[in-house]
Nucleic acid binder design. Structure first.
Lengths: 170, 170
DNA sequence: GATGATATCACCAATGATTGTTGATTGACA
DNA sequence: TGTCAATCAACAATCATTGGTGATATCATC
């Protein structure tokens, strides 16, 4: 993504004000390769600014998304994740247990809809999502919470389950 | 998916009772290739059973999912969709405007994580999601609501927008 | 056919992620 | 320096989904 300075200039150009909170969030996103959730951006920002509110984080992230400076991913993990890496086309590795997301830089341009199978769709792009267990969860012996494709993580049972495992972890 | 009779037997074997509601839902799913949402299953079921409740539909769909008879998909469209087609491995075409999902039977077994890029993940499977505009939305001149990958459809603004378009459509 | 365990109903409350509202205060920038 | 946007805290609302209630209905079994 763009540097803090570039984003600052961009915001000014668009008539938005550049506050300390916003710069703090820019900074947090800058080095982040972990596809943070709004919540984790908030936590990181609070390390620098005690009082920054979750609301402000959401607002700024949405502004960045609207300006096309970050991507918003809904990969079926129950929460949106923000991806500051827009420079290169990439795909994702998603942990079935903790929902962690990693970039995967690989060329899948050969992955296309076979002719005649497009069902009348005007196909824009392809996303490849690999699901599995991340290193951390493997070591901890965590079991996948989502057995099936794009498992429905919004289901309360699974969310409860995930929270329970996070508690155990402490 | 299994026939109504097979599901009936299966439910009995598991100590579950087979009610008229459940058989109604089995029947609805039977011929459905559209990856219905719980809501649309409910509507279809109500055509046959006036009084069937959304709660019962959710419950039965979840039981079917727990028994591995249907798959639950969260493809970033804001609502879970249920896929009765488990016989063959397949991927999906998702409409960026209305959220409609179509099966795509294609072999992407050559789509794998390049060696050395697995980031410590124990990779289970790959899903390929093609996004675009379905035939209906193209004809209606609908614009995509989700410009980016797995666009965050849980955002209120987009949900409102989608409802608005559905209203217009009537 | 009687019995007991489940399902279902209607209704209402809760969940979690996200957004809206309000009113007061702070801070950016021309 | 004045103005308008941004922020705050606090609280309510949203949507899809699940939980709880108590009453009624119905399945499976004897």
């Amino acid at each position: 993504m763009k540097s803090v300075e570039e984003l600052t200039a961009l915001f000014r150009r668009r008539g938005r004000k550049v506050t300390a909170q916003r710069q703090c969030i820019f900074g947090v996103l800058q080095g982040d390769l972990s596809h943070p959730t709004a919540e984790s951006v908030h936590e990181a920002a609070r390390a620098e600014m005690e009082t920054i509110s979750l609301k402000t984080v959401y607002q700024t992230l949405n502004e960045l998304a609207a300006m096309g400076e970050v991507a918003v991913l809904d990969l079926g993990t129950g929460t949106s994740r923000f991806d500051p890496n827009l420079e290169s086309v990439h795909h994702h590795l998603v942990c079935r247990s903790c929902g962690k997301v990693r970039d995967l830089h690989a060329d899948f341009s050969n992955v296309t809809v076979p002719t005649g199978s497009d069902e009348g769709f005007e196909v824009g792009g392809a996303e490849v999502v690999f699901r599995g267990l991340c290193g951390d969860c493997r070591q901890r012996g965590r079991r996948p919470l989502r057995p099936l494709a794009h498992g429905a993580t919004r289901h309360r049972a699974l969310q409860t389950h995930r929270r329970a495992q996070q508690e155990i972890q402490k």
